[in-house]
Write a protein that binds this DNA or RNA. Structure first.
Lengths: 114, 114
DNA sequence: TGCATACATAAGTGCATGCTTATATAATGA
DNA sequence: TCATTATATAAGCATGCACTTATGTATGCA
């Protein structure tokens, strides 16, 4: 994929969205594939409405896509976004988040979403 | 320089600071060398106190260093910061800001600070 | 049909943020 | 010494933001 220059204002908007611990963790989790809302709630140890509201911001900015399957909604990174490469690059600087998901599995809490 | 992993929380803090049009522009300008406050004021077309307050946030986070020379204060990127490499990487995705400085010079407004 | 589950949305609240105006500090130069 | 220039800081204000609680919506299943 070709590296695109992102204007200051949209770039700042994306960075602002990433500039929140919760959302940065969400994006970090999505690096390794899609997740459903209930997984975020478990991993982040936050209320469901709070998580939903963060996801809405990310979706409004089109940083993530949603896929509905049954009663679940799966979120994933939107690789078509202008800032996708920048986000991927940023994610190389933060710790792997998928470990949190495997811990979930150990606890048997990743029961939903299949 | 060795690439360091930055924990989620400090990473989010840095991204939050960059997630503002004004501060992102300031950091972009500093990529090409140090600038003094009056230059920022001219380039950004903002009030001096507002610029100073943004610089203070960047300085409090140690993203930038200051150097006093006469009545001027020159700011520069702090290459010792844990997030320096990440910031440099992010800057490769946004437009060059130094053009704004050369425009200043054309206008003869980069008179101070020598 | 009715209940449970997964998720979204709305409304309210407290705190953070970015600006403005006014003033302080510090260096320079007449 | 006094005015000027460069910068910082303080206080006030309007807006934004992240949370909570309460409720709405949609799907699945007995």
């Amino acid at each position: 994929m070709e590296k695109t220059v992102i204007d200051i204002e949209p770039a700042a908007s994306v960075l602002k969205l990433l500039g929140d611990k919760t959302r940065l963790t969400i994006i970090g989790l999505l690096k390794d594939g899609e997740c459903c809302v209930c997984e975020f709630v478990e991993v982040l140890q936050m209320s469901q409405p709070s998580v939903s509201q963060h996801l809405r911001k990310l979706r409004d900015a089109e940083l993530v896509k949603e896929r509905k399957k049954g009663q679940w909604v799966f979120y994933s990174l939107n690789s078509d976004h202008d800032a996708f490469l920048m986000i991927e690059e940023i994610l190389t600087f933060i710790p792997e988040q998928k470990e949190k998901l495997s811990e979930l599995e150990k606890k048997g809490l990743r029961i939903c979403c299949d």
